[in-house]
Design a protein around this nucleic acid. Structure first.
Length: 187
DNA sequence: CTTAGGATCGCCT
DNA sequence: GGCGATCCTAAGC
């Protein structure tokens, strides 16, 4: 069983998908840009929301691949994952940063600022700029208002340990577009 | 440049 | 009751 969207097989392991997503453009209602930073989370991963099994919150992580898992971070921010592996596995890729390319005006308005560099450079910022909320939980990546566009050229990818977690902090499952200035933090 | 604290809420122990 | 897959602002060096 495979699930291809924008040339990526979302039934592959999370770290592979996280790497392949670098350079891919994600748009919601035509607003968004190029993914420049991701992190992989898998079932056998103490840092993952899916580690302790299915709950009401993480249900879509255990749903079919190629959809979105949206969660509330610190009771304030909305963050977006792309679900991967097979149905029931509980793996996903956190979209940590985007290079804004489309709908700059809308994103600036939603973020209340105009510095392109800070518009989508962090998972909570991405959520705010793309107007993501709980309503997008379970939304398919290949259905409106979402759009995924393949990277238009080969990209160089850098890796490092994931950010903001205390468990399994040494696993190098953070991926970034080499030399991007839109990372949430340097590699 | 680094560090600290507050905002704010659903989940888990 | 505690603690996050965070962000912003302010203060210290």
């Amino acid at each position: 069983m495979t699930t291809f969207i924008a040339g990526i097989d979302f039934s592959a392991p999370a770290d592979q998908v996280a790497r392949l997503l670098i350079g891919v453009t994600v748009l919601i209602d035509g607003v968004g840009g190029r993914i420049v930073e991701t992190e992989a989370y898998d079932r056998e991963d103490p840092a993952s929301h899916s580690f302790s099994g299915p709950t009401a919150r993480n249900a879509s992580m255990f749903g079919p691949p190629g959809r979105i898992y949206v969660y509330r971070s610190y009771g304030i921010h909305w963050c977006m994952n792309f679900v991967c592996r097979e149905q029931g596995h509980g793996a996903g890729v956190l979209i940590r940063a985007i290079e804004p390319t489309q709908g700059l005006e809308a994103m600036c308005a939603r973020r209340g600022m105009s510095d392109a560099r800070l518009l989508c450079s962090g998972p909570g910022r991405v959520g705010q700029a793309l107007a993501i909320d709980h309503g997008f939980n379970g939304q398919a990546l290949d259905e409106p208002p979402l759009q995924l566009l393949p990277a238009d050229q080969a990209v160089e990818v850098v890796t490092g340990p994931r950010i903001g977690i205390s468990k399994a902090a040494d696993v190098p499952w953070r991926f970034g577009l080499a030399n991007s200035r839109f990372w949430s933090k340097r590699f």
